[in-house]
Structure formats: C-alpha cells, structure tokens
Design a protein around this nucleic acid. Sequence first.
DNA 1: GTGATCTAGAACCATGTGGTTTACTATACC
DNA 2: GGTATAGTAAACCACATGGTTCTAGATCAC
Lengths: 119, 119
Amino acid sequence: MVLDHSPRLDLVFHALAHPARRAIIRQLTGGERNLSELASPLKMTFPAASKHVRVLEGAKLVRRRIAGREHLCRLEAAPLKDATLWTEQFRQFWETRFSALDELLEEMKQQAEAPPRKP
Amino acid sequence: MVLDHSPRLDLVFHALAHPARRAIIRQLTGGERNLSELASPLKMTFPAASKHVRVLEGAKLVRRRIAGREHLCRLEAAPLKDATLWTEQFRQFWETRFSALDELLEEMKQQAEAPPRKP
DNA sequence: GTGATCTAGAACCATGTGGTTTACTATACC
DNA sequence: GGTATAGTAAACCACATGGTTCTAGATCAC
C-alpha cells in the first residue's frame, strides 16, 4: 500500500502545485538546462525562478551539477512515478465502476438494503 | 497537451500535498462519510479537519450533500485523473530510456558529439 | 422541552510561500 | 586587469496555510 503519511509525497505534490515549477519540469524533458535558460520563459525575476528550482530539488525532481559558472539542471523523474502510483490507486473511481448506470444501480441497491456506512 | 498553466491542476496538486487530505481521500474510497467520521482518525481538532475537507472541495475532489445535521462527503475522482494524466506525460523518463545502460550510452554519445543543449 | 450531537464561523497565532530589490561572489571573455 | 555573465544570499513584504480556541446554530433523541 502506498502510505498517505509520506513526507516525500508531500514535497512532490507541493512541488507540482505551481505552474512555474511544472513548466520547469516540462522544459527539462528537453535535456539539461542552466538556471538562466529555465528562468527566461517565466514571468518573474531570476531569484524567484531560482527558488522554484530549489523547491524542485527539495522534492528530488531536479538534480543540479555545477559546470564553471553555470548550474546545469536535469530532470529526475522517479518522484513523478511515486506521485502517479499514489493517484492511480483510485483509477477505478474515475472509470467504469462510477459510470452513470453503475451509480444509479448502486443507489437503488442502497435504498433496498440500507446497509451501515462504516465498513 | 496537458497545460502547465492550469489553476485546476494547482488546486488538485496542492490538495494532495497534505497527508491528512490524502488520508481523507482514501477514507472516502469506502463510500460516503460525514465530517465527524472523516475527522476522528486525524490527529487534529475538528475545525482543522473541516478546513481540510474544504480544501478538497475547492479542488473538486470531494462533493458534499447535507442530510439533516450531517454533511456527507463523497469522493469525486475526476481531478485525480487529471493529475495522473499530467504526471504520466513523463513516464518515459522513469522507464527504459533512462535505464542505467541507456544513460551510459547517452553520456558516451554526448562526449563524442558535444551537441548544443538547446533544441 | 432538554440535552446531546454535528457542524459552521470567527478570531487569533505561528509559520510558510511567492515575490521583489539590493548587494555580493565567482567564472568567463577580451 | 577590467567587464560582462551566472548565480547566490539576505532583507523585506503581502498573503496563504495549518493549526488552535471559543461561540453559536441546527437537528436529533428522549
């Protein structure tokens, strides 16, 4: 089972919760980029963009190597896998089981049986 | 393409970034629950738990219906699908392409060609 | 009606977040 | 050596977040 109490998952989901950080991740799918390259398409100052990269590093979504005066970043996708595994646990809830027909049937069943809500 | 600039996705990922809220989601896989049921397993006061439910509602992950004095919550999994779709875009980056061997080959190729980083 | 239960809401507090500006360090280039 | 470039660090700000306590309003059970 994938635990809900996982500080790592906290960091990953939080990192993904900002459009600038998602944009950085997408940019890194093109390969290594330095901070200036990552910052330039974002509508904010350089230090602000730099902070976003740090958040991504904290979530292990980005790894940085220093080459001269440049800091080159690369995508580290493993945490994205963890995030996907967590959300995919609930796949059944957005698929057939909760189609309109099944939902109706379930409601009819509940009315007929009136079972306790707790498992 | 799944956009990075999506306020809906901001809300969903932010909602998932707290262990209490993930626990609530998991609890709701067992069916409808009222607020007291959702709050009791959480190590916090009732108003705090209630706020977490509101965050989940804001992200459309939970829908509430009022029955007498109880507020019954149910899971609304569609936003989880959106989140999964976003993260799954990068599946290739945690799979074969970045296996140890491929990574080595890529590094050798880079050393041989020294291509520009930008596409 | 009385009392217990379920929930909302407001006030408050500490801390975190996301952004800015300014100043500084270190490397590269000529 | 002097200057431009890449990046950090610190100070500051407005606002959000996550928690508490206390008060109050419905509704249910007896």
